[in-house]
Structure formats: C-alpha cells, structure tokens
Design a protein around this nucleic acid. Structure first.
Length: 506
RNA sequence: GGCGAUAUCGUCUAAGGGUUAGGACGUAGCCCUCUCAAGGCUAAAAUCCGGGUUCGAAUCCCGGUAUCGCUACCA
C-alpha cells in the first residue's frame, strides 16, 4: 500500500470513478465526453465521481485554465462528489512511492540522457552493429543492472520491468489484453532533479497510479489513447501491492477528415458550444451517443434516461467522427421538445445577455413569455435566435431584414393597404386570432389582392422578418397597440422607399 | 520502423452464424402551407479486400490493406 497518512477516500465499497483533466488547455469535446461517461457510470451505479487535476507538468500547466475547465464541466451538468484534488499538492505521496519502489528493487536509478531512450531503438548502449539486424528491442540501459559510478543525486528513477513474462489486464470495452514485457520500456517514475532541486518530479504514470490507488478508484474510464499505457500501470499497481481497477477505454473523437479532433477542425472547446447557444442537455445527448449506444433505436434521450440505461457494455470500440450537423439537429430537437418550463430559463439568460430582458416576464407576464417562446421555438436552432431573429417579439426597436423587404414589399399598393389595415385593426374591440384574420382577409378581398400578399407584407412590418411564426398568432402575442404602431411605421418606411415625384416601373 | 487496436450507408450506429442488413443525422422528392421551419410520406445510400470454416458468414479463423493509438525525464 501507498502511504496512508494523508490518504483520501472512504472505507465504504461501491463504484468510484474519476475525471482527471490536465490544465494545459480548455475543456475540449473529447475530455467532455470522457467526463460524461464517467459521470453517467457513477450516477447509474450510485457511485462516487471524483475530480482530479493532473498538473504535474510544470512546463505546460496553466493554472488559470483550471477554473475554465470546471466551468465547462458545470455547464455540461457534470458534478463531482470529491475534489477537485490537485496532483501538484500530492507530490510527496508520489515521491514516497517511487523511493519505496527503488528501495525494494522494483525500480532503479538511471542517469542516462533522455535522448538515449527517445526513439527507442538503441539495442544496447554498446554495439551499434546490432541495430540493423533482427527485430528492435526496447531500450535497456546498464543502470538497470547497477551501473558503476552512478550518481544517484541527479538520476531519474525508472521502473524495472520484469522480463521474461507477460502482463495482462481486462478492459471492459476492449476485452482481455496481454503484452510481452519485452515490449514495455523501463519508463520513468521520478524525473531527475532540476538544478537546485533536492528531488525530482513524478511523471504521469506514477502520479496517476498512486492517486488512483489512494483514491480507491474502482473503474478507470478514459480515452483509448491510454490503452497502450495500461500495461505499465498494471505493472505499477502490482509493484505497489494494489489490485488494478477495471479499465474501460472509450474510443477517440475524430474530425470530419478522420484525424484526431483538434483546433484545425474549428470549435473543439466545450465553451465555444456554450457560447454559440447550444443547450447543455442537447450537447450531452449528442456526446452520449458518440461511442455509446443504448442498443435500441432511440436518439432523443433525456439525461435521466441515459443514466438509467448507461453501461460499459454499450461502449463502442471504433473512433467516431464529430458531426456538427447532428449536434445542431439535437439542439433543435431540445428547443422544440423540452417541456416549456425547462426551456424558459435558458431563453431568459439569452435575453439578459442581449439586454432585452424585462423582469416582469418572470412574474406577472410569465404566461405571455411562455406562450411567446412556445410560438417561436419551432423555428429556432440556437439560443441566440431568440435575441436576434426574434428580437421584435421582445423589443420595439428592430430593423427590417433587407431580404424580407426585398421579397415581400415589392408591390406598390402595399403602403396604402397597410395603412388601411392599421385603421381597421385599431378599431377592433377584441384582439384575437380570428378577428385579425377576418379583418385582413376582408381588406384583401376589397382591394382585390391575395391574402398572402398582405399577410407576408404585414409580417415584415410587425417583426421585420420574412420567416416568422404564423401571422395571426404573432399579432396576438404582440398585442393590438404595438401591431398598429408597427404597421404605421411600415407605411412610412414604404413611402420613404420611393422618392416623391418619381414613378417606379416594374 | 516496432507494438497494439479498429473496420456496416457520407456521418453516428443496430443486428454477434439464417433479416428484403434496421434506425437516426445529412441529402433529394412529394404532401401540408400566409413565409420559413416543424410534421407526414417516399427515395438514393453500407457489411474494406482476399482466402478459409460452415448447409449457411456482416457475424468465427487467417492474410492483406487502410485508419487510429502508443512507441517522452507530456499527460
């Protein structure tokens, strides 16, 4: 066992999983999916979710990024029961483990230059001749057998991989695996001390295993890029006297060109999807189905349903391409199908962001707000649509969409007709769908034009868009006074379009 | 180069010896219609290649190919 003095973890059994990001960048979609799978599994099993920040790489760490990663997780709806723990604060535990391994002979001091190991095909430090012949072997240097004159003071500690045998582990996704130990290099546990340092820094392999043991992790769910590291870790577990956890490697997420998802493919950070106005639950649903299948045809799965069905058996072994079009489809599904009360807070946040929000919409005019959002949502794709495309529903200050004017304000008679429509509407004693419908169609008949001409022109006049909900429902939520005012404003806009004294051809 | 994994419509996937190989996204068309969506209907679209095993293979085995991963004193 590892030192228990500053041990974490409780004594109760049950599933314990962790998400362990390193703060070298933002939370990206691959990490988010890994976090999500851990979380689904923990929640499904009634287990414990632990967050651990793997910040052992002093060179690349950016501590200021940690908060952003946590924000991304919170937005995703991934919560954790323990942590965040920081590996940088647990170095003593890791070092103690390395020294213990060195003392027991499971590890050894090595002062060879790193370049010797990099590239990995130095057969033996002595003869170059053998490089050409035969299959390449993993580097084993003389330090392994106790090199003479070795200065322990500035040496690294390497794990002494036991030769002549094989290392096995079971993967819940990929099945049983076995590798010959000859293929496993004597990886570094503790880096050589930097100038002025008393003792070196632990590596990922060491820290991860020591912490997983100490935190009593039962299931390591992580990206399949770690599958090749796993034999090393299995070896470490045993050398430290611990039983390896269940490993579950989930396939990687690829860009449309089938290479690993990266900045080149555009937005890869979770934050950018939040900023674009995706709903977290839609994003979760999309990510859940990338590399996992419930085994039936269901696509639209609320989070609770996913948790209820999640199992490691359903995880795929094939890397998956991130398909933005499908993500957008999920978002429109949620925009349309969510119980309206679940959607309202998200729309409110969007309107607040756009400085369009009126507090009364959450109080005495809540009913109106709910109806309006419900009317708008079938035509929205992203949250900002509510404050841009649908701006006229929440503000008197809006502009006429140029394409809409072009398309529906062509007819020269429109100026006078919209004026007459305003006059007729202002006289209406009751403001409802049928009354508006009746007035407009009467006018169209009297003018000898199709109702559609007037309907489309009116739509542009009152909401500024060519695309909007059905007109009479729109008029009802907007209200009588605003509709009349907007029609009169449109009459002016239409009049201004044609300079006085000038006739216009077709 | 070495080691490993993976391979079903363009994409995500279902089927794990016997199915017209199913669903979803996207695409195309039709219906609906006051715009545009939504919705409904329809269509095109796949078992990487080659060998085996078997009465029968997408499914099991072998080889090839492709892709991805690892091959750091990064994580």
């Amino acid at each position: 066992m590892v030192a228990t003095s500053n041990s974490i973890g409780n004594s109760s059994g049950g599933v314990r999983v962790r998400f362990a990001p390193s703060p070298t960048g933002y939370l990206h979609v691959g990490g988010a999916r890994t976090a999500l799978f851990n979380w689904f599994f923990a929640r499904r099993q009634g287990g414990t979710m632990i967050l651990r920040v793997e910040d052992t790489d002093v060179e690349r760490n950016r501590p200021e990024l940690v908060e952003g990663i946590l924000d991304g997780l919170r937005w995703l709806g991934v919560d954790w029961d323990e942590g965040p723990y920081f590996q940088s604060q647990r170095l003593d535990l890791h070092r103690a483990a390395a020294e213990k391994l060195a003392a027991s002979g499971a590890a050894y001091f090595c002062d060879c230059p790193p370049e010797k190991y990099a590239g990995g095909d130095a057969v033996e430090e002595t003869d170059d001749a053998k490089k050409e012949a035969g299959p390449r072997r993993v580097t084993r240097c003389a330090c392994r057998e106790g090199k003479a004159g070795l200065s322990v003071r500035n040496a690294a500690i390497r794990f002494r991989v036991p030769l002549g045998t094989t290392t096995k582990f079971d993967d819940a996704v990929f099945g049983p695996r076995e590798v010959a130990n000859e293929e496993i290099e004597d990886f570094v546990l503790l880096r050589s001390p930097k100038d002025g340092q008393e003792i070196g820094a632990p590596t990922y392999q060491l820290s991860a295993v020591v912490d997983d043991i100490d935190m009593r992790i039962t299931h390591v769910i992580r990206g399949s890029d770690h599958i090749s590291n796993t034999p090393k870790q299995a070896l470490l577990y045993r050398a430290l006297g611990a039983t390896p956890p269940v490993f579950a490697h989930v396939p990687l997420i690829l860009g449309p060109d089938r290479t690993r998802l990266s900045k080149r493919h555009g937005a890869t950070s979770v934050g950018s999807y939040r900023d674009e106005g995706f709903l977290p639950e839609a994003f979760r649903n999309f990510l859940a189905l990338l590399g996992w299948s419930p085994g039936e045809d269901a696509q639209f799965l609320r989070t609770l349903e996913i948790v209820a069905r999640f199992s490691l058996e359903g995880v795929s072994r094939t890397n998956a391409v991130f398909d933005r079009a499908k993500l957008e489809w999920f978002n429109t599904e949620y925009l349309q199908k969510l119980p309206i009360d679940d959607l309202l807070p998200a729309v409110q946040a969007e309107l607040e962001r756009a400085r369009l929000w009126q507090p009364e919409w959450a109080k005495e005019k809540r009913e109106w707000f709910s109806k309006t959002v419900d009317l708008l949502r079938p035509r929205t794709r992203l949250l900002p649509d509510f404050s841009t495309w649908a701006r006229a529903f929440f503000s008197d200050s809006f502009e006429y969409n140029p394409q809409a004017r072009e398309k529906f304000w062509k007819d020269e008679r429109l100026g006078s007709m919209l004026g007459k429509l305003a006059d007729a509407l202002v006289a209406l004693p009751e403001w409802n769908h049928d009354a508006c419908d009746h007035v407009l169609r009467e006018l169209a008949a009297a003018e000898g034009v199709k109702a559609g001409l007037l309907i489309n022109a009116t739509r542009v006049a009152i909401v500024g868009q060519a695309v909007a909900p059905p007109l009479f429902e729109t008029m009802v939520v907007l209200g009588q006074r605003p509709v009349v005012n907007r029609l009169r404003r449109a009459v002016e806009a239409l009049g201004a379009r044609i300079p006085p004294g000038e006739t216009r051809g077709n």
